[in-house]
Amino acid sequence: MRACLLFLILGVALVLQATVFDFVSILGVKPDLVLLVVIFYGFIHGQREGAYLGFLGGLMTDFLTGHYIGLNALSKMAAGYLAGMGQTKLYKENIFIATIVSLAGTVVGQTIYYLLLLVTGIKVSLYNGFFHVILPVALYNGLLTPLLYGRFYRSSTRGLLKMPEV
């Protein structure tokens, strides 16, 4: 049930990104909702879970994009893992801290994506990459965090996304 719900959330986030979000883009940039879900999940449940969901969400994005399959899987996996590092060290209930984690996680995820682009031979200048994509996406994701994190956190600790006790 929980796995199906996560899959559904990623699917809906992906369809929204591929359709609706162009209408709410700011300076040509739209938020990376899939990455945001991965970061939230990693921050709440830890490195391993974050990396797993990051790989799955990234792979789904790659399949929809249809080319260079693995770019999103690897970058989102790293972002999920990094967000998970804060699970035991940071105060998860605090939305301000969650916003900082979202900002940092998005910067890391997008930077790894950028580096993988360079490895693949796709040239994007550092200036354009950082100022026209990485930074605006991170800010956009950071702005969305206060709106979405509370619900996600409650669902993950008390609701449908709560992990079964072992």
Binding site: L14, Q17, A18, D32, T61, L64, Y113, V133, P136
Partner: peptide, 14 residues
């Protein structure tokens, strides 16, 4: 046009 690249790096439409 029925869709766009879900990311911000690439520019593709479906």
């Amino acid at each position: 046009v029925i869709g766009r690249d879900p990311g911000n790096w690439f520019g593709t439409i479906t």
